[in-house]
Design a protein around this nucleic acid. Structure first.
Lengths: 224, 224, 224, 224
DNA sequence: ACACTCGGGACGACCCGTTAGT
DNA sequence: ACTAACGGGTCGTCCCGAGTGT
């Protein structure tokens, strides 16, 4: 067991280095050599923990799936908004999240299957919207699946745009713009009026989540 | 000059092959070798016309810029809608357009500069929205630039989603969904009421453009 | 002492796995990783017992040297025949013998020295032939060393052929053919007439050897 | 076309280097890097002519198949003897032949199929023996196929032995020994009496073949 | 002007035999 | 006896430019 401590450390170092490189260069553009250079690891160590380059990407993706979601809320529309805000905040602060998104969006038909993350996001959103509709928060004509697919696609596109234009620096604003352009078409006016769409909401939610327990769910891996 | 006939033919063959491969594999995933195999060209010929792989990509991008835009219309909002519909139609029918979009969206910081196409789309959209606003078609709080950036981003994301999910087969529908979710937040209700958002509009516009003159602006590249 | 029991067991497991893999892939083609996988051992255990891959091969070779020879007989020519028959039988039944031969025949100048096994066989055969000549069993012009070298070489070649063609299944027959083609040129007609060259002789000799004592000289390694 | 001159030269250089390395290290033991170093070639050139390491080996094998056979003779037994003698001579003088044999004998179940060359040799020998039998040169009990398989196997074994013991230097002698040990069991005494089994026969046959025409069938590839 | 064959190397991912640290 | 780590090395590929026709 004492051995595992070192192993865990190494594995973490590898994942962080991989995330950094994947984020910057994309999957194909990344090379094992650069990853080991960035992480100060050796090829042997890397291939001990991950059998192939693809495993590395999957590892980064899996790492990100462990992040905590926003806590359930009475208004499901608000929960949807918050999920977006929290994600935007994490994109700006967490390299692993950035790398995951980059990998998910990287279109290289072969190899890594991108439909995985996409489908997960769509599913989550659909569920949220369905709940909201049950609760009578949405306009009657809204089809949860259709709207969810559109929303996830648009969100992804906005992320790409933000990355291209400012390196994610303005992502929170852009997400707000997205929501302001979309919500009026799906939520009841009364619901809209009571939403908290203020800037900085993502950061606040993250703070709450991190404070929730002593083990901040990898919220601060760089301090390790 | 007689010589040039062959040269033009070769160049076209190269571009088509490059488009096909780029579309399928992305930039990094494509290899010169596969392009020449697909196009039935030789390396020598390729490197005579294009000095580097990057040139090939730029060539494909340039090729697509020659496509005709939708004709001006009284309602600028309708013109915006039509631009989207036409683009969706072309995505489903024209490999060069598909390749261009794929290349534009491919995030590989280094190499090809993706901000180019993005900015062009944003610019066009901003202009259109500004005109619409001047004409009083938009809601008062709309900021053309902001909305344009969002719209282009969302559009790009929807394209990606469609490509991932169905290989662009459902892109026209998805674009309609996008517009139905966004337009209510920016256009006046009265304008919305008079819009033609019916399916198949993209195809009809393309037909008109192609019929407009005997030289169908590369509308039939395969016959060349 | 209690410890040694496990150690012996592990060592045996390693050798058997190594034999199996060496036989199938040859020396260079075999990997430590596959050997530990086949044997269900760990790298640490393997490198505790054998310091290097080459040691493993030497271990397999040594293991085979412990096998019992045919019992001395009045006719040395018959003894020679029996040695071949027994060896053929063992090749068909004992993986360690097969692996040893494969390793001995594998030509990779560097590393393992193949002349070892070869020379041992030649020596044995020479001695046998010399005895036979002293006893007047051979034709007068026979030079024991020369004939021994030829015989060993031919035998090795026949083994290879059999391995290639049938995976050793027909080795006993091929050895008989070898002997029928060679013996007339070296043994007196009268000796030839009294030889037992019947099929199945190898198996019968092996049975006798195994029954000879309770400790069947590794005749049943799996029970250890 | 002028280009091909260089290409042919390069190809030849590659094959010669490959033969040299294969002969010394065997297939698995050889590395592309060493081959290009020995041949003074570059990896690009090598992989232009041969797509994979295996192709190289096949190329060497094919090169050797082009060698001229011994001219037909009245006595098919003599022709068989001569084929062996010529082969022994070539083994001592021609690196490509040596490499081919080494590759054929290299047992690495996977990859290159060794049964190819083996079967060809067996076939040739069988035909020869069948002819000899038709002509009444053989003892009545000889089965051409059986004898051929034995003979080829024994020959291969003798080659290995010679390679191990002397680096092929004594191969011609060993082949003579082989023939003296085998022929009495298959050929009529009268035929045996008229055979030319003298040393140096291989060299003499080769000289005749090379002199036969100005194009010495690759007899002097280094001068090309 | 245009096209093609052939060659040049730099790297890419991956694997392998082996040793440290328990 | 075992988990973990080490680097060197392997084959193959890729982008690209000489050198040579046509």
């Amino acid at each position: 067991m004492a051995k595992q401590a070192r192993a865990v450390r190494t594995r973490q170092a590898i994942l962080e280095a991989a995330a950094a490189v994947f984020e910057e260069r994309g999957y194909d553009g990344s090379t094992i050599t650069e990853i080991i250079r960035v992480g100060g690891i050796t090829k042997g160590a890397l291939y001990f923990h991950f059998q192939a380059k693809e495993d590395l990407a999957l590892g980064v993706l899996a790492e990100q799936e462990l992040k905590k979601p926003v806590p359930p809320q009475a208004s499901k529309v608000q929960e949807l908004v918050d999920t977006g805000a929290l994600h935007a905040y994490r994109m700006q602060t967490d390299p692993v999240v950035r790398a995951s998104v980059r990998l998910s969006l990287d279109q290289r038909a072969q190899g890594l299957d991108r439909t995985g993350p996409f489908n997960r996001w769509i599913e989550t959103t659909t569920t949220l919207l369905a709940r909201a509709k049950e609760q009578g928060e949405l306009l009657p004509h809204v089809l949860p699946i259709q709207t969810a697919e559109f929303y996830v696609g648009a969100f992804a596109g906005v992320q790409m745009m933000s990355q291209t234009m400012s390196g994610h620096a303005d992502l929170d604003e852009r997400v707000l713009v997205l929501q302001r352009h979309v919500l009026p078409s799906i939520a009841l006016p009364s619901v809209l009026a009571s939403l908290d769409l203020s800037p900085g909401r993502g950061a606040r939610i993250a703070a709450v989540l991190d404070a929730e327990d002593g083990d901040p769910a990898d919220g601060d891996s760089s301090a390790a």
